[in-house]
Amino acid sequence: MMKSQRTSRPAAAPARAPKPWQLRLYVTGQTLKSVTALANLRQMCEIRLKGRYRITVVDLLEKPQLAKGDQILAVPTVVRKLPRPVRTIIGDLSDTAHLLVGLDLRATG
């Protein structure tokens, strides 16, 4: 199932002007890489996007048909659905610099 984890969403968040970021993390089960990726992503978001993001974790083992939509090959993959344009980062997100580039967070940070 698609697990929507409204992670770390403070009460003040809905009042903020910009739309929240929508991030989708594709994983295959609870592998080390999956867990690491989720942890890394959360950490990054907490620092950079606190209160303005939403992470959806998609387990492809449960919903394999969803791999087609975002053209997922590599796992883990993070897809930034919003804001546009869609951006994709693959890997366990342990390389923070590349993650920032991938999410295009350099400007805001």
Partner: peptide, 16 residues
């Protein structure tokens, strides 16, 4: 298209 950050595999392809 994709930015690489850390370890990954092609499990997505396998799943598909």
């Amino acid at each position: 298209d994709a930015q690489e950050s850390g370890e990954y595999d092609l499990e997505g392809l396998f799943v598909r």
